[in-house]
Design a protein around this nucleic acid. Structure first.
Lengths: 206, 206
DNA sequence: GAACTTAATCACCACCCGGTGACAAAATGA
DNA sequence: TCATTTTGTCACCGGGTGGTGATTAAGTTC
C-alpha cells in the first residue's frame, strides 16, 4: 500500500465509469421527468459532470439516446417469468397480454419512451421506436413456440389492437390516473382491466 | 363613401377579431406542430400580433389553453353523422367505435391534445383531458338511447379498452405510421384495423 | 377640436438552452 | 524527470423563451 491505495479515488478519472454515469443519469432523468427534460445540460447536471463529456463520449444527445435504445433491447425478457406453456394460441396471447401489462407498468423508462414516440416523429426517436418494436417482436417470437393462430383470423392485427390498448391504458394511468371514466390507480382497477382484456383476447381467437 | 370606406382596414383594431385570431392561431399551431411548439412567442407570431395581447386577453398561455378546451366540447357531435339506431348494445358500441376512429383520425388537433395528456401531467393539461373526457361521455350518452349493456359484462371497462386501442393506433399511425409491426398508412391498413375492432367489440358483448 | 379610453406595438429583462474552444490536472510512458 | 495523452472543468457565444413596463396610435365621447 505504498502508492495505489484509496481505490475509491481511482473511480474518478475513469472514462468507462463516467460513461455509465452519464448513461444511467440520462435513463433516470428520462424515467422521472420525461423526454421534455432530456437535454444536454440536464443530463450533465444529473450525472455530476460537465456536458462537454456528453459530446466527447457519445457525440451529443443523439448518440446518447441511441445508447439508451441499445440498453432497451431486452427489457421484456428480464422482467417476465417463464410462462408455463399453454395449450392454445388464445391462451398464449392472453397470458402474454397480461405479462406485457405488468412489465410495462413496472417500467417507467419504457413508458416515457412510448409517450415520446407519440409526440415527436423526429428521426432521433424513430430509432428508439424500432428498438422497442424489435424487442417486442423478439419476445413474442421467443415464447410463441410452435403454436399457430387460427387460420381464419388476422392475428397480427388483433395483437396490435391488444398491445395498443394496454399501452395506452398504462400511459394514461401513469399520468392522469383515469381513462374514459375508468379509474386506473389502485390495484383493483387494474384487476378490472386485466379481466376485461383476458376476456376479449380469448373471445377474439374463439 | 366619405369617411368609412376601406372596410378591410376596419378589421384591424378590433378586439374580438384579434382574440379569435389568437385562438385560431393557437389551435392551428397545436394541430400542425404539436404541444412542444405551443409557446407565447410562437402563437403571437402565428396570429400576427404581439404576445402582450395574449396576456391581456387570455391571461397567458393557461387561459389560452383553457379557451381551446372550451372549443373542444363538441368535436364529436359535429363530425359524426347521425347513426341509424341499431338493435343491440353490441351493435351500437361497434358502430360507435368505428365512428370514433374516423373522427379522431380526421382531427389532428384532438390527436395532439391526446398525445399531450400522455406526456405531461401538468394541471394545465388536466383541464384539457377533462374537457375531452366529458365530450366523449356526452357523445356516448347522446347516442346510447335506451339500450342497456348485458348485465354480466363490465361495459365501461370494455369501452375504455376499445377507445384506448383506437386512440393509440391513431396516434401511432399519425407519427410513426406503424404499430407492433402493423402498418397504419394506407386506407387498406385501416380497413384491416376496422375489421378487427368490429369483431372484437361484437364478441366481447356476446 | 380636445380629453379620454382602448388596442396594439416596442424595447427590454433575466434565464436557460445547445454548442464550442481554451485551459487545468491527472495518468501514462520514455 | 520530462513530454504526451487522456480526463475533466471553465468561460463564453448566439439564440430563443416567458414575462413586463413604457409608449404610440386609433376610436370614442363630449
Amino acid at each position: 500500500m505504498t502508492g495505489k491505495d484509496t481505490p475509491k479515488d481511482v473511480r474518478s478519472r475513469n472514462r468507462g465509469q463516467t460513461e455509465t454515469a452519464i448513461l444511467e443519469g440520462a435513463k433516470a432523468l428520462l424515467s422521472e421527468e420525461g423526454f421534455q427534460a432530456l437535454g444536454v445540460n440536464a443530463v450533465a447536471r444529473r450525472a455530476g459532470c460537465d456536458k462537454q463529456l456528453i459530446y466527447r463520449y457519445f457525440g451529443g444527445l443523439d448518440g446518447l439516446v441511441e445508447a439508451i435504445g441499445g440498453d432497451l433491447a431486452s427489457w421484456l425478457q428480464d422482467g417476465v417469468p417463464p410462462v408455463a406453456q399453454p395449450a392454445t394460441y388464445a391462451e398464449l396471447m392472453e397470458c402474454m397480454a397480461l405479462a406485457f401489462l405488468d412489465a410495462l407498468r413496472a417500467n417507467p423508462l419504457v413508458q416515457k419512451i412510448a409517450a415520446w414516440e407519440l409526440s415527436e416523429p423526429s428521426p432521433l426517436v424513430v430509432k428508439l421506436a424500432e428498438a422497442r418494436a424489435g424487442s417486442l417482436a423478439r419476445w413474442i417470437g421467443a415464447i410463441r413456440g410452435d403454436l399457430l393462430p387460427p387460420a381464419n383470423v388476422d392475428a397480427p392485427a388483433i395483437n396490435a389492437v391488444v398491445i395498443a390498448a394496454i399501452q395506452h391504458l398504462v400511459l394514461s394511468g401513469a399520468t392522469t390516473g383515469m381513462f374514459a371514466g375508468v379509474a386506473l390507480r389502485e390495484e383493483a382497477d387494474w384487476d378490472r382491466v386485466r379481466k376485461v382484456i383476458a376476456r376479449m383476447v380469448r373471445s377474439a381467437y374463439a
